[in-house]
C-alpha cells in the first residue's frame, strides 16, 4: 500500500534495515530506571544449571584481548545508528578459557536489576558477541549500560543487555524479558523480526 505524498525523493540507504530510520544521537532505552554499578564490584558469571562454571571480575575482563568493534546498531523502536565504535572482549576468547558442553545451544543473559534476554549460543561466537565496556573510546556510561553491557550488534539492540551480570547456558530456547511480552525470540533486523510471528 502506497501512502501518497509520503517520503518523496527519499531513497533507500542500503545500510539501514527495513522499517528503520537513521538516528544521529544515541537514544537511551531500558525497561526500568538506570542502574549504577561500581566497576570494582562488578563481575560476570557463567552458569550451567545451578552450577557456576566461571566468574569473571572487572580485572579478569581487562586481561582478555581487547577487541575494537566498528559497526551499525539497530533498535527495535525503529532507529539505527551507523558506524558506531565499541571496545570489549569477545565471547570467543572467553569460551577458550571456559569450555562449553555441546548440548548447550542457547544462553539467557541476565542483568543487574532483573532484565533478561535469550540468544542462540552460536550468535555470540566467532566475534559476533562481546562484553563491551567502551563506546566511542570512553567508558560506557550507566545510562547506556556501563560498566559492561552485552553487545550483539547483528541483532536488534534489546538483545545487547545493559548492566550485564552473567549468562545461563540452556539446552532449549526460553523467552527473556521482552520476549515474554511478545517480542521476537531471535530479532534479526534485516528480516524485521520485531515481534513474535514476524
Amino acid at each position: 500500500m502506497i501512502n501518497e505524498g509520503f517520503g518523496q525523493n527519499k531513497s533507500k540507504n542500503e545500510k539501514i534495515p527495513p522499517g528503520q530510520y537513521l538516528e544521529k544521537s544515541f537514544p537511551i532505552l531500558s525497561a526500568g530506571p538506570t542502574v549504577h554499578i561500581n566497576k570494582e564490584s562488578w563481575d560476570f558469571t557463567i552458569h550451567e544449571n545451578d552450577t557456576i562454571i566461571s566468574k569473571i571480575s572487572w580485572e579478569d575482563l581487562n586481561n582478555f584481548p581487547k577487541k575494537e568493534i566498528n559497526t551499525d546498531i539497530h533498535c527495535v523502536t525503529k532507529w539505527s545508528k551507523l558506524e558506531t565504535n565499541w571496545e570489549g572482549v569477545s565471547f570467543k576468547d572467553i569460551f577458550e578459557t571456559v569450555p562449553i558442553k555441546k548440548k548447550y545451544r542457547y544462553i539467557m543473559a541476565y542483568s543487574e536489576g532483573g532484565y533478561t534476554t535469550n540468544v542462540p549460543l552460536i550468535d555470540i561466537l566467532d566475534d559476533k558477541g562481546f562484553l563491551a565496556y567502551k563506546y566511542d573510546k570512553k567508558d560506557i556510561t550507566p545510562e547506556h549500560g556501563g560498566p559492561v553491557r552485552l553487545f550483539i550488534p547483528h541483532l536488534y539492540f534489546w538483545k545487547s543487555a545493559k548492566w550485564i551480570r552473567g549468562i545461563k547456558l540452556l539446552e532449549n530456547d526460553q523467552p527473556g524479558f521482552w520476549e515474554k511480552y511478545g517480542y521476537h525470540m531471535y530479532g534479526d533486523p534485516w528480516k524485521e523480526q520485531r515481534y513474535q510471528g514476524d
Partner: peptide, 14 residues
C-alpha cells in the same frame, strides 16, 4: 504505523 512512498521507501513508528 507503516508508511510507504511510491519509490518503495518504508518508515514505521509506534
Amino acid at each position: 504505523i507503516k508508511l510507504t512512498s511510491d519509490s518503495g521507501y518504508v518508515a514505521q513508528r509506534s
